[in-house]
Computed example of a mutant assay.
Amino acid sequence: MAYLDHAATTPMLPEAVQELTAQLTVTGNASSLHGSGRRARRTVEEARERLAGALGARPSEVVFTSGGTEADNLAVKGLFWSRRAADPRRTRVLASPVEHHAVLDAVRWLADHEGARVEWLPVDGVGRVRPDALREAVARDPQDVALATVMWANNEIGTLQPVHELAEVAAEAGIPLHSDAVQALGQCEVDFAASRLAAMAVSGHKAGGPYGVGALVLGREHSPEPLLHGGGQERDVRSGTLDVPAVAAFAVAAELAAARRAAFARGVGALRDALVAAVLAAVPDAVLGGDPDPAGRLPANAHFAFPGCEGDSLLLLLDAQGIECSTGSACTAGIAQPSHVVLATGADPDLARGTLRFSLGHTSTEADVADVAGAIGPAVERARSAGLT
């Protein structure tokens, strides 16, 4: 099997598995005051310090969550509610249209249920939000903006956003900028303090950690309204008993991913470049998605649109040959819908329906690339033939 869907989830690092396994046999609620509780609390706080170090943040800025989706929702909804409560004029949300659905749907929910006025920031042909676009949107009335949200790296097409420049624009106007950095951890240099972001979401299972754990890195000056109410854990913005084993394993994985980032980018980036060359040689009219400059995209991402094909058909044809990847299209009522990310870049809807994402990771090999090179041409030919019948 050639597993090329690491952006969906990547295998756990052995060190993270070892940490998780060791902690599973230890009893203790980190909120309890007795000895077992204090030992669990110590494990959590040590993990918080390790994760903060990997992310360029202070330990007090790390709020553990159940994953990236919860972290994104807490940031988007929570900051909207708190900013609006402080000033009822703040109902405008500035968001990029290429966000992961964890952000996209949270923003739309605020519009449908909370009276938010959403302004979608334009992106260019590679899916990038330019700082001038954010500056122009803010300038229309800085006082009515509740927050802005732009992801660090796109999960479908791999394009990197100019996060530091965008955060500078937002900070100058006193507007919190949130960034979904789920795909960036371990592939890009992620430094929360240097970024000037107000909030940043990360997830364990995208960086070699376990499922079901993530974090919202939250500047100490920000206090979003919580989504969950209960015991007041995690700065009173995220109640709930912490999953101590998962938190500990996540911290190990994040620390290793950050430490190995440069080597990962070199090795996996070279495999990605070989995969791109192989696909374009086999299917010359395939269209590479995202920024064609390797410096402007995730080192593990290779996204293509195949004219005359349905992405789902291609995915299944490759899956039958043991090659696992993903497609950005969604199926609604049995009808394939084009990727919202690809459409936002100005691509033709028919082309946007025929996309595949190959994403590599720490277990990827040259054999995986060779498997794709041998299978993609015949798969595209079959998918096109099927489309004509």
Results as ranks from 00 to 15, higher is better:
V93P: 05
S66D: 01
A85C: 08
P88I: 12
G68P: 02
E46F: 01
T65V: 10
L94Y: 03
L55E: 07
S31H: 13
E49I: 06
R50E: 11
A54W: 02
A133L: 07
G125Y: 03
D141E: 10
R48L: 12
R92A: 14
E70T: 14
V62G: 07
H100Q: 01
V103H: 11
L74Y: 00
G56M: 02
A75K: 00
G56T: 07
A102C: 11
R117M: 09
R92Y: 07
A57R: 03
D87E: 11
G125S: 11
E99A: 13
G56K: 06
R90T: 06
L51H: 00
H34M: 12
G67N: 04
P59W: 07
V62S: 07
A102E: 08
V63N: 03
V98F: 01
R83N: 02
D132P: 04
V126I: 11
L33G: 11
R39C: 02
W109C: 09
V93Q: 05
A106Q: 00
R39S: 04
P59E: 08
R84S: 12
V93K: 04
A106V: 00
E61D: 04
E114A: 14
D124R: 04
D112Q: 15
A54T: 04
S66L: 08
E136R: 15
W109T: 10
E45S: 08
G115W: 09
E45I: 04
V62M: 06
E61A: 08
D87A: 11
G67I: 03
W81G: 12
P97K: 14
S82A: 11
P88S: 12
D141N: 14
R41H: 10
L94C: 07
S66W: 00
E46V: 00
T43I: 05
P59T: 10
R90F: 05
T69C: 13
